[in-house]
């Protein structure tokens, strides 16, 4: 193996290993409590994941909350990548509709109960 190629592989490893670790840790994520929807960086709505709901995000797309998960439906954008994304439920997970400027994010663990 040439020296340069070895450098390549070291570089790629340095890039990939932390990322893979981050992904693995992500898989251990705690279930989220709520779903936060932002449009253009500003909070549009927040909804509890425990209650089934259908939220119309300003006509740009719809967010369906069901079974403690959130997913995107009927986006106006062309690429429909956001609606193809599997439902999210772990804290920190996101679905983004870039053309629509919408970010659907699961907010991390709040208390299990409030009294």
């Amino acid at each position: 193996m040439s020296k340069k190629l070895r450098n390549d592989l070291i570089l790629i490893a340095l890039l990939i290993i932390p990322a893979v670790l981050a992904l693995a840790l992500g898989a251990l994520r705690k279930p989220g409590r709520a779903c936060q929807i932002t449009v253009g960086g500003e909070i549009f709505a927040e909804a509890d994941l425990k209650t089934d709901a259908l939220i119309d995000v300003d006509g740009l797309l719809k967010v369906r909350i069901e079974d403690g998960k959130a997913r995107v439906l009927d986006p106006v954008c062309k690429n429909k990548l956001c609606s193809a994304h599997p439902p999210i439920s772990a804290s920190g997970e996101t679905i983004i509709c870039a053309p629509g400027g919408v970010v659907v994010k699961i907010l991390g663990q709040g208390p299990d109960f409030t009294q």
Partner: peptide, 17 residues
């Protein structure tokens, strides 16, 4: 609230309003 055991990554969390 009554709790038993814990969650996979910690105890049960109760928020007091």
């Amino acid at each position: 609230v009554v709790t038993s055991g814990k969650k996979p990554y910690g105890k049960w969390e109760i928020g007091i309003e």
